[in-house]
Simulated assay, not measured.
Amino acid sequence: MSLEQLKKLNDEMIDGLCSFFKGANILIEKDTEIVTIYAYLLLQATGIERLQKIVFILKYFSETKNIPNENILKKLGHRIDKIHVNHLLEHFSDTEKIYFETALKLLTEIVNVKDGYRYVNFNFQDSKSFMVQQQVVKILEPIKLEFDITNILDLTKLSWNILDLILKKYTAILIDLIIKKEIGNGEISIISCVQQLSPKKYLFMNLNLEIEKIINNYKN
């Protein structure tokens, strides 16, 4: 990999990922009224897509000793749920995959222009409308198979916090693959802001236990 290619890859990791994920963290920490949830989802989806594609590039280079060309990268598309299933699934345990796949599908449906709902409110020819809060609660579909979610004070806030937890672990797993050089061979220079996105508390946490804690916090 040339010096220019390395610089571009590292710039994408630093300038893109750090800003997108940090921005999402600020929104969920500061927003008590759920007015910025759509911006949070856009930041998460964009950051995750970039991270997925960085991992794909590193894997491709490791296997072929070539950088994927523009056509190969374009074929990946923008559906982060499909990028995950087609190229990254092997790096995730079966026990938690339903949570990751549900979260990524939810994000894709909300922010994907072609297949999702981003501009549905501009269609004045039908009665459809889009409320992001109604979409976020879809994260509870696999959750309610394992946990009792009756008597919840605020399903939207519960859903947002569970989704955030799942996405933090997903991000931590991908970044840890790069840090440990299980993907790539040290092409990415790991700086503090990248390390902060992959703390051990997210990397090794038991999602079921943490989800149960969140549910209990929101019960009457």
Rank of each mutant, 00 (worst) to 15 (best):
37 I>V: 15
38 Y>C: 13
39 A>P: 12
39 A>N: 14
40 Y>M: 07
40 Y>I: 02
40 Y>K: 05
40 Y>C: 07
40 Y>A: 05
41 L>N: 10
41 L>Q: 13
41 L>Y: 10
41 L>D: 08
41 L>V: 08
42 L>G: 09
42 L>H: 12
42 L>T: 07
42 L>R: 08
43 L>M: 04
43 L>H: 00
43 L>C: 00
43 L>Y: 01
43 L>T: 01
43 L>I: 00
44 Q>G: 07
44 Q>S: 09
44 Q>P: 06
45 A>D: 14
45 A>M: 07
45 A>G: 12
46 T>F: 11
46 T>P: 06
46 T>N: 14
46 T>C: 11
46 T>E: 15
47 G>Q: 00
47 G>E: 03
47 G>M: 02
47 G>S: 02
48 I>D: 07
49 E>G: 04
50 R>M: 13
51 L>Q: 01
51 L>P: 02
51 L>A: 09
51 L>T: 02
51 L>G: 05
51 L>C: 02
52 Q>F: 11
52 Q>P: 03
52 Q>D: 05
53 K>C: 04
53 K>L: 01
54 I>A: 05
54 I>M: 04
54 I>V: 07
54 I>D: 03
55 V>D: 11
55 V>A: 10
55 V>I: 08
56 F>P: 00
56 F>G: 01
56 F>L: 04
56 F>D: 00
56 F>A: 03
57 I>M: 08
58 L>H: 02
58 L>D: 03
58 L>I: 03
58 L>Y: 05
58 L>T: 01
59 K>L: 14
59 K>I: 08
59 K>R: 11
59 K>N: 12
61 F>N: 08
61 F>A: 07
61 F>S: 09
61 F>W: 10
61 F>K: 06
62 S>C: 13
62 S>D: 12
62 S>V: 08
62 S>H: 11
63 E>R: 05
63 E>A: 05
63 E>F: 08
64 T>H: 03
64 T>Y: 00
64 T>P: 01
64 T>I: 00
64 T>W: 02
65 K>Y: 12
65 K>M: 11
65 K>N: 11
65 K>G: 05
65 K>T: 10
66 N>E: 14
66 N>R: 15
67 I>N: 09
68 P>N: 02
68 P>Y: 05
68 P>W: 01
69 N>L: 08
70 E>V: 12
70 E>H: 12
70 E>M: 14
70 E>Q: 15
70 E>K: 15
71 N>T: 12
71 N>P: 14
71 N>H: 15
71 N>W: 10
71 N>M: 13
72 I>F: 09
72 I>D: 06
72 I>M: 08
73 L>G: 13
73 L>P: 09
73 L>Q: 10
73 L>W: 06
73 L>C: 12
74 K>N: 14
74 K>R: 13
74 K>F: 11
74 K>C: 09
74 K>S: 09
